[in-house]
């Protein structure tokens, strides 16, 4: 057990804890948009921390760079997918937010608040 392995395990365990959080959030949150917030945790923090930890764990140049590239691809594709899901489900009225305090977007779309 060198220091490098301990740091790698630290990153991986942190990623695992955030992934558990996401699962609990996905079950407990009330509607689509708040669940997307829960899934953003796993895609932003957990995937990057996990790829960082594995890159430290294997510690070979080409393999580590490959894993970091996979983490970068996670960071690029995540906002595209979540933004597309949320915008489409709001504009097409597939799922309207159940709990809300303010809603400026329905004014912009000139739609009544249900």
């Amino acid at each position: 057990m060198t220091l490098r392995i301990i740091i790698a395990y630290f990153f991986m365990v942190g990623a695992m804890l955030f992934a558990v959080t996401t699962t609990v959030g996905l079950i407990r949150f009330p509607d689509v948009y708040t669940r997307i917030h829960a899934s953003a945790v796993v895609l932003t923090i957990s995937a990057v921390m996990l790829s960082f930890g594995i890159a430290i764990y294997v510690w070979q140049f080409y393999l580590s760079m490959k894993i970091l590239l996979v983490g970068l691809i996670f960071l690029i594709t995540n906002p595209l997918a979540t933004h597309a899901i949320a915008r489409a489900s709001y504009r097409r009225q597939i799922a309207c937010p159940e709990v809300r305090s303010v809603d400026d977007y329905s004014d912009y779309l000139e739609r009544d608040q249900q």
Binding site: G25, F29, D103
Partner: peptide, 20 residues
């Protein structure tokens, strides 16, 4: 992420989502 995680483990979720 820590703030969102805190909401997930509350007994009664206290968040107030909205579109600003």
């Amino acid at each position: 992420a820590l703030k969102v995680s805190k909401h997930a483990f509350e007994k009664k979720p206290t968040f107030s989502p909205g579109i600003v």
